[in-house]
Design a protein around this nucleic acid. Sequence first.
DNA 1: ACCTGAACACCGTTCAAGT
DNA 2: ACCTGAACACCGTTCAAGT
Lengths: 219, 219
Amino acid sequence: MAVSQPVKRGRPSTAKLSEQNIAEAALDIIDERGWSALTMNALATRLNVRAPSLYHHIEGQHDLINLVRALIVSEIETESLASLDWEEATRVFGMSYYRAFLAHPNAIQILSVTPIDDRATFQMYEAFLSALDRAGWAAERALEVLVGLEYLALGSAYEANASEMMLNAQRAEDNGAPVLAKFLRARSDSDSLVEEVFVHLLDDFIRMFKSERDRAASS
Amino acid sequence: MAVSQPVKRGRPSTAKLSEQNIAEAALDIIDERGWSALTMNALATRLNVRAPSLYHHIEGQHDLINLVRALIVSEIETESLASLDWEEATRVFGMSYYRAFLAHPNAIQILSVTPIDDRATFQMYEAFLSALDRAGWAAERALEVLVGLEYLALGSAYEANASEMMLNAQRAEDNGAPVLAKFLRARSDSDSLVEEVFVHLLDDFIRMFKSERDRAASS
DNA sequence: ACCTGAACACCGTTCAAGT
DNA sequence: ACCTGAACACCGTTCAAGT
């Protein structure tokens, strides 16, 4: 009679876990089933391990979130920024920031409200702000550019994937909002490239700050 | 000997709960201790009731969130929009949208990712989009204005209260980001009125779309 | 050092029992 | 109709026991 294999106890000969593969598995779960599906149990199961094992490698949920952030941020272009003027730097940074999060829209909701606490993300901000600093931007305005850009990029990336769910045409109709319903349907019909919309907003955004600087310079 | 009062069982002579006071208590908890503190237990305790009682009045968490949304949205100006042109409508709507959420920054993170399912919110969108519709805006572009405006308003309102927490100058310093740290410190020193920053962004935003329309009209 | 099962204090939600 | 305690299946996290 075959006896069911007993679960091995104690330390395995080769470690199954690492910060790296934990972060990757976490991001996979977020991408596939949303942030709410990322429980310690689900994460452990995907890694063929029990939940308590995770605590030998990460400190808890907050730590886990910042590992996921570092993974996404690593896809953002920062090296070339040092050799560009502020307009080009803003465009390059904005586009790659947008693309990085467009690939992981489900991560946005949790990352946008968790305090930043990982080196990769600080270095990303530093690279972009240094470009503005070299161009002589004041602190207030430089941070406004950064924050405004983040809102547009994160908003557009989230919107591209989740707008159908947040604002549904049929529910709009049912709640006495025919104009909204008409607009929502017209958009989904045209089915435009979502990236085009962001490129458009990014252009407007840069032009807006450029014209302000030109006015200030000529006065 | 005084005997401890036994807890009353069964239906009380006058009902303790209603959708209204549940929603208000929920918003109070969110304002005071953040969204994560809004558990059914905490909510019930504040209303002098046990958690299961809530389910006689609300269907669950999703329902509760939309009740809170309706409460906040009720503070947004919509009546005057019908008599304004699109620029003024955008300014009035944007400002009151911003102010409504500035008063409840902790609600933003959950509301911005929960599908909209309450009449008050649909009616708010309808009022604003009707103003753009009357001005002849195309569906794509009108939704871009709405969505862009929401990001700027929600972002600024959240930022005004939580930016210290999200991006901390000392942590920036510790992670090798001196330019970011310098900018963050310069801003907190100047301590400008947060509303001024949003007014500035809102002006820029409207001008951005206006110049685009003017170009399109003259071609 | 690193994985495990057992245990703890919590969750949201259901439901029969009470008035 | 509406509030209650008990119960259910989950959470994240801690910790002693194993190798």
